[in-house]
């Protein structure tokens, strides 16, 4: 399981990265943490001409609050995100997601940008970003553009990024009062890719759900937004009956493919289970909160 031969080049600035990309062509790939890419190359699933190492580009690092927005550099590792006070306070869904990503040694190296750009449909972070209505900043020699998370994921390992583009940052609206979230996934073993998972972000005011995003992972070829189930919840309060109704409705949102863990029917069933568990977790947290 040795990778095919390729060139390794390192870019220390974005400009250098774009220059190297132009030099090495369409079959050159960005190397961030490498935790998915290098494993895939070990299976010789692709044969890039070159890997352009972007892990030491300063502007890709770091977490900061800009007004109502939290900016996460695409090169920030899962470990850094998991340990960040800013993330815990302002984007708690991400903080909850991090421990579910593989294992410590992987999290120390893997980056949020790498995970999003790799676009594994069973990964947690793409679903979280869709649920959080994140915006992705993509850059190339031509300049910068912003892509909503909702529009970013096109399919299995496929995204809106152009071949010469690089994901540089993720911008996520900071949580405000009334925001609630949950992340639930079903795995056979700790750290495994999910059999089924959901990221939920909802906003509640005056005992009513104003907005809600239910985003499934491992249940489609990309993060799946459950519009029908969300519609059941909108404008109502979060009570057990309503949760039950949302769970029943969710089948209309899904057309899951089977995998080695089980067929589509099992996936549909688990989708209901994770939806209910996620919403019940929010409900339980609400009930524990001081009035």
């Amino acid at each position: 399981m040795k990778s095919p031969d390729f060139a390794y080049v390192r870019a220390d600035t974005l400009d250098a990265a774009f220059r190297l990309k132009a030099q090495h062509g369409a079959d050159a790939r960005w190397l961030a943490g490498g935790q998915s890419l290098l494993a895939a190359l070990a299976f010789r699933l692709s044969e890039p001409t070159a890997l352009i190492d972007i892990s030491r580009i300063d502007v890709l690092q770091g977490i900061a609050v800009n007004g109502s927005m939290v900016r996460i550099g695409a090169g920030t590792t899962h470990t850094t995100i998991g340990e960040s006070d800013i993330i815990r306070r302002h984007v708690p869904l991400l903080a909850d997601a991090v421990p579910h990503i593989a294992h410590t040694a992987i999290r120390n190296r893997g980056t949020i940008g790498g995970s999003l750009a790799f676009a594994d449909p069973a990964a947690e972070l793409p679903a979280c970003c869709v649920a959080l209505e994140a915006t992705f900043v993509a850059a190339s020699a031509k300049g910068e553009r912003r892509i909503s998370a909702r529009d970013f994921f096109h399919g299995v390992y496929a995204t809106a990024l152009e071949n010469d583009e690089l994901l540089t940052a993720i911008e996520i609206p900071a949580a405000v009062a009334g925001d609630h979230h949950a992340l639930i996934e079903i795995t056979r073993r700790s750290g495994d890719y999910a059999m089924a998972g959901i990221a939920v972000a909802l906003r509640r005011s005056d005992d009513k759900i104003d907005r809600v995003r239910l985003v499934f992972f491992a249940l489609g070829d990309k993060p799946v937004v459950a519009h029908v189930a969300a519609g059941v919840l909108l404008g109502t309060d979060l009570v057990e009956d309503q949760i039950e109704r949302a769970a029943k409705a969710v089948s209309a949102d899904l057309d899951p493919p089977g995998d080695l863990n089980g067929g589509p029917e099992m996936k549909r069933h688990l989708a209901q289970v994770v939806l209910k568990r996620a919403l019940l977790q929010i409900l339980n947290n609400l009930m524990r909160m001081p009035a």
């Binding site: 390794y8 390192r10 190397l31 490498g34 935790q35 290098l38 890997l51 992987i106």
Partner: peptide
């Protein structure tokens, strides 16, 4: 200082 999977790190990097 941090543990990593050695098989998922390029020596060249």
């Amino acid at each position: 200082g941090a543990i990593v999977r050695g098989c998922l790190v390029l020596a060249a990097s």
